[in-house]
Structures are given as C-alpha cells and as structure tokens.
Nucleic acid binder design. Structure first.
Lengths: 210, 210, 210, 210
DNA sequence: ATTTAAACGAGACGGTACGTCACGTCTTCTG
DNA sequence: CAGAAGACGTGACGTACCGTCTCGTTTAAAT
C-alpha cells in the first residue's frame, strides 16, 4: 500500500474508518473534481480526524489510489491472477476488453476519481512509482501474456516488441480519455485494434487481407 | 490568446511586463515543478503586481500556455505554416520528427512547463478547449497532411483512418513521457514507427517483408 | 503598539477591521474566558481573516493588550496626562482611587479580558516588557507623582521609597483580584490604605492618631 | 490530593510511575516553560501512558501541584507544623523569611514550575480552590500566627487586621516576582518590611522613631 | 500457586486550534 | 489609467495536543 510514513501500528488500525475515508474520497472526487478535492473535506465527510488520514497515507493521491484499488478489487477475485479473455480470436478479444474499458472511462463514478489520481501521479513522482509498480505493471504483464499467446499461436509477428504492442493498442485510448480529444466509443477502439494489428502500411498486404 | 476576461485596453498593455511574466512562469515551472508554482511567486519573480496577471490571463494555466507558445514561436517562422518533412520515405521522416520530439521532452527547460500546462489542462476544461483549438488541432492537421501525402503516394493503406493513425504513432510517445513509464529514446520511437506502419499481425506479411 | 512582525504598511491598514478585531477579542474574553479564547474565534467573530490578525499582532496577548488600551483610552483625554486626584487628603484620595479600581475589577466586561491579558503576560516575557513599558510604568509614575506631592506637603515620610510605597498600596489589590483570595471591596482597600499609611508597628502612635 | 475522578484503586497505584510523572513534569516545566508544557510530553518523558496521567490527575495543573508539593515536602518535616522563626525581633525574622523566599523564586528549578502552576491557577477555578485550601491557607495561617505573637508581645498594633498585614508584607513580593517588575532582592524585601512596619505616613512618627 | 482484575505502556481515534501559504479581489499610490 | 504594491476575506495546508478509547502486558491481591 502507498502508506506508512513512520510505521504506525497497522494492527490497531480502524477498518471502518479506513473504509469511510476511501468511500468519502471516491464520492468527493466524483462530485467536485480533483481541483476542489481536499483532505479536509474527505475527513469531514468520513467523520474522521485529519490526523487519521495523515497517519496512514502520505498524500491525497495515495488515498485516491487505495480507494480505486479497493473499488477494483473484487470480493472473490485476487488482483494479480486475472487474465484477458482468450477465445482464439485476438482482435475480437481485444475489442471486447477495450469496449469494457471505454464503458468504465465513460462512467463518472469511476472516471472522475481516476482522473484525479492521474493528475496526482503526474505531479508526484513517488506516487507515480507506486502506481506503476502496483497497478500499471501487473496490468501490462497481463496484456503481454495475452499477446504472447497470440504470438505462440502464430497470429502475431514473432519479432514484435510486446511492450511497444501494448503501448500501440492501449496508449491511444488513455490519451483520448485524458485529453477528452473526442468521443470515447467502441467504434474508435475497434478501428484502433484493426489498425494496430494490420498496420498502417499498405505494401502487399491487400493480397493477404480478404 | 486564452485571455480577456473583460476587455482591458490591449493597446496600453506593457509588453516588457508581459515578457517578464511569461519568462518568470517558465523559469519557476522548470525550477519548482507544477505543484509549487504559484501566481504569487510568478508576480514576485517578474516584479509585477498580481493584478496585472489576473487582468490579462484567466488562470495560471493560461499564463503557462502563452509562455510555451512564446517559447515555441520561432522568431522568423509563423506557427501555422510549418510542415513535417517529406523526403518520400515516410518511416524515416516520422522517425526524424519523433526523435526531435523526444529531445524536447527530455529537456526539463521545456518539459517541466509542458508538464505543468498538461496538468492544468486535465483539470480545466476551458483551458483544455483553448489548447485543443490553438495547439493540438493545428499539429494534428499538420501530421495528417503528411500522412495523406503518403497515402497518395501509395505508401499507406488508402482505407486507414488518419486520426487513428496519428493516435497510433504519437499517442504512445505522449503517454510514455507523461507517466514516465520508461526511458524516452529514439530507439523506442523508431520501434514504434516500424510497428505502427507494419502492423502487429503476422499472417502473410512474412512473405512481403524480406 | 505591540505589533509589526515585519513592517506591513500601516498606512493601508483597515481601521474598521482593526476595531472589529479588538471588539471581538474583548467580547470573547468576557464570554468564554482565557482558556477558550482562540485567534480563530476572534477572526470569525470579527469577520476578519486570521492572516489579518497575524499580520498586525505577534500574539493573542498583543491583541488583548491593544483591545484593553483602546478600551481605556478616553475619546478626549490623552493617556499620559491623567493624574490622580489631589484634595490635600492623601488617605481619602487613595481610597477613592482604589474604590474605583475595585469597581472596575468587579466588572467582568473589563475584568475578564484583563485576566486573560495577565495570563498572557505571565507566560510571554516579550509581551510583559511591552506591558510594563506602555501601561505599568506610566501608571506607576502617576501614582508616584501623587505620593511625591504628599511627601512635599509633609504628609509622607520624606525618606520613604516611593516604589515600595506603590507596591505596598496597590500590590495587595492586584493579588487579591488575581488569586480571588477573597471579596474585593472598598472596605478592604480602605483598611489597606489606613494600614499602609500608619504602618503595622504600634509604638506610641496611638496617641497621635486622634 | 487534587485527584480521583472516579475512584481508581489507589492501593494498586504504581509509585515508581507516579514519581516519574512528577519528576518529568517538573523537569519539563523548568526546560520549556508553561506554554509548551504538554501532558503528551510529560507522559513521553516519564515513559508512562497518557491514560495513567488522566487516571490520577484531573488536569495538567494538578500534576504540577502535586509535583511542587512533593518537592517542598522535606523528607523529615511534616508540612503543616512548620512555623516561622521567632527570635523576638519581628522585623529581623520577616527579613530572614523573605530573603529565603526570594532565593527560592530566583531559582528557575523551583520558579518555573511555580510560574506554570500559578498560570494554571489563574484560569482554573477548581484548581485555585484546591491550591488555596491546601497550600495558601496553611501558609497564611502560619504567617498570621507569627504576627499574632508579635501583637501579643506589643510589637504590633493590636487593632491591625492580620490578613491585611499578611497581604501588605507578602503581596508585593509575589507581584514583583510574577510580573518581573524588577530585580527580586533582599534589599527590596528589607525595605518592604521596614516600610510596612513603620508605615508611610510621617506625622508624629518622627517623634516616636528615634 | 493459581487465578483474576486492575493498572499500565502504547498509541489510534475524533477533534480543535495552531501558524502559514496561496487564492482572487480590492484599494491606494506612482509614472 | 496601467501597473507595483500589498491588505483583505477565504480556505486548505500539515502539525501539535487534547481527552477518550481500545489493545495486549504486567502485577499484585484474592482465591
């Protein structure tokens, strides 16, 4: 967890208060946006003392981070074991996954806290490192595992750099969301997947398409 | 300019003061980062009154925006007429351009204010609109013009959606920079260009590669 | 004034706000007592920002000090020129003065802020110095002037140390008030004056009393 | 003792801890002054839990009170039976006693905690009552006993109000100490005793002095 | 000798107030 | 009259203690 300033006694920690703080942070982020999200307000909404927040989290972003982790951690499922679907049809699978992502990003309840966390990450290098290690890297590994399977099945160029591949497919989605560059739709992600897989260059590919 | 709350008399505006403010904003952004960048400090550094800033810019982000515009507007060149190079070799041209971008993004003098502006854009929808209209869209058009020429020359799939193409090529660069996901090098952008142009899928491409 | 941390521009000072702060301080001291008197509450009651208080006064005690000064500074009269009454009868004059002091000290409106200020003085040596210089010393000089006149008129021992004399007469009043050691009445101060003037020792004085 | 909120079992009380707390309170009062003396710091210094302090003392002042009591209670002597010296020469005896008091008040080790306790007393009426009953009154009775003996011996005006007499002699000393109005020396207390005994008024005293 | 109930250290908790910083508005004086 | 200077009300910051409340862990009296 992105916590532990000076090792308080985790055993004594009040779980109800922790939950209340995470919930309040999420609610407030959705309601007022990042700019107006204050630790003071989170504490007040949660019925907690400010010190309780400062005791367990080093920054506002760390609270948000835990709140979003808690939101995405399904009661049964453990976080790391999740896999992307594999029906054998890579393009279809990716389109499905990206469509789900798009849905999530279009839901303010999830999207606003996520945007707030993102802003925090951009200006807080320490938080960014935690984020990469605990959220981004596992997700990237999961994506690469799916792509590797496609490679093994001969559906993907065996020489392709899978990190670049992940960037190619997911990067544009994140960008369009972050900068609100245009409507974030399944049509866009479908086109994205097709283009990324086929490549932009024409050459002789016309012949192989069909 | 992203300015003009209530139409002060632009004619009477003090140009030396304007320059001092933009310079101070840039310097401070590079020195202390976005988090600690305050209008108060910009005014103090510029030897200007706070009101002078508030009179001419609606937000801290707008100051940064103008500052970066001023930075990139070369003495001779007018902004809108610039074109990407066209040597006939699309891949080489793109690699050249992205290498230059990478250099810029690795230079804190440019990169830190840019990051500050980006953060502002993420939380300020009005500023974001200005940014898109005055910076992002012209750049995107420029990129699309170059790609269209490649299309006309038969080097690019004639069915490709050029907006998706731009996202595919430039999106991953911006992401890697923004989230410091890894070293931002020409090696990365070269691989990116190759992969984006060729596509990820194998199929019969092996035959056409050689 | 016990002010000026870092020389703000006194000319620009808002007099209405200054008055509101002094009044609020006085009112709150009378209402809630020293213990619960907070700068936050003074600012809130005065409709002022905390910073405005911190800008002009170095401590809570300094605010109280000014507030009490303002309270005692009569509209017409200048502070330093006041004199104790001189009817020729020293004992009667002192009794009159002490009776007035007793009235004041029994009035919570004056007494409570005074007590708050006193507590501050006891724990703040810097404030204590200001208090001595600006309030205590002038009062003491005034008292000594009256005693000196009695000395000149042959009513007081010409060898008496007037500082000790002042301590002897006024000290017990302040003590009884401060420690609530008993009812603070004119009867007490009358006895005090008589005893101080006559002395405790008996000797043949009985004969001279009348 | 100024203790016993809700009757904890005194028998089980840890005496070493009690001592550690009193010592810590004294030390800290001498070191940092009243303003910065906190229960939290006392507990930490004493290696005690905060609750242990709150269990046995109702306020910070009560701790200080006990600490000073413990300091002044000499190993052999019981508190109440002490008497002021009586050599037959009242003035000399008083001067001796006041000189000792002055020494004590000039010793920060005793003086600082005493000042802290005094401040507490001024703002805590309940503590003030305890103080009066347990410390001030016994001392005052002791003083009055000595003065009464002088009265019986014909050295003091038989009509003198002994309470006023005590105030007259000891009040100025306490005041000068409390408000740091000037150096607290034996010279001052000597003059005080002489003046208080002889009185300020001249009149026929000249005749009786000799 | 064992039980058992308390006092104990430790410290998390909801709070209040601290003193500081920056916001965006305003007012006054100067060039 | 634009601009510098900066006071103002506002609100959030991060910290220090308050007094209350569990937690195990001694520890000393009652079994």
């Amino acid at each position: 967890m992105p916590t532990d300033r000076k090792a308080p006694d985790t055993a004594r920690r009040s779980q109800p208060t922790r939950q209340a703080i995470l919930t309040a942070a999420l609610d407030l982020a959705a309601e007022v946006g990042y700019r107006r999200l204050s630790i003071e307000a989170i504490a007040a909404r949660a019925g907690a003392g400010k010190q309780t927040i400062y005791r367990w989290w080093p920054s506002k972003g760390a609270v948000l981070f835990d709140a979003l982790l808690a939101l995405s951690e399904n009661p049964e499922g453990s976080d790391g074991d999740v896999e992307l679907p594999d029906t054998g049809d890579l393009a279809a699978d990716l389109k499905l996954v990206l469509a789900a992502t798009v849905d999530e990003l279009n839901n303010p309840r999830y999207s606003e806290p996520m945007r707030a966390l993102t802003v925090e990450i951009l200006e807080n290098a320490e938080l960014a490192a935690t984020y990469r290690e605990r959220l981004d890297q596992p997700m990237r590994e999961m994506k690469k595992r799916r792509l590797r399977k496609a490679q093994d099945a001969g559906q993907l160029d065996p020489d392709a750099d899978l990190d670049v591949a992940v960037d190619l497919i997911w990067g544009p989605v994140q960008n369009r969301w972050l900068f609100r560059e245009g409507p974030l739709t399944a049509a866009f992600t479908d086109a994205l997947v097709d283009t990324a897989l086929r490549g932009l260059a024409q050459a002789s590919r016309r012949r192989t398409d069909t």
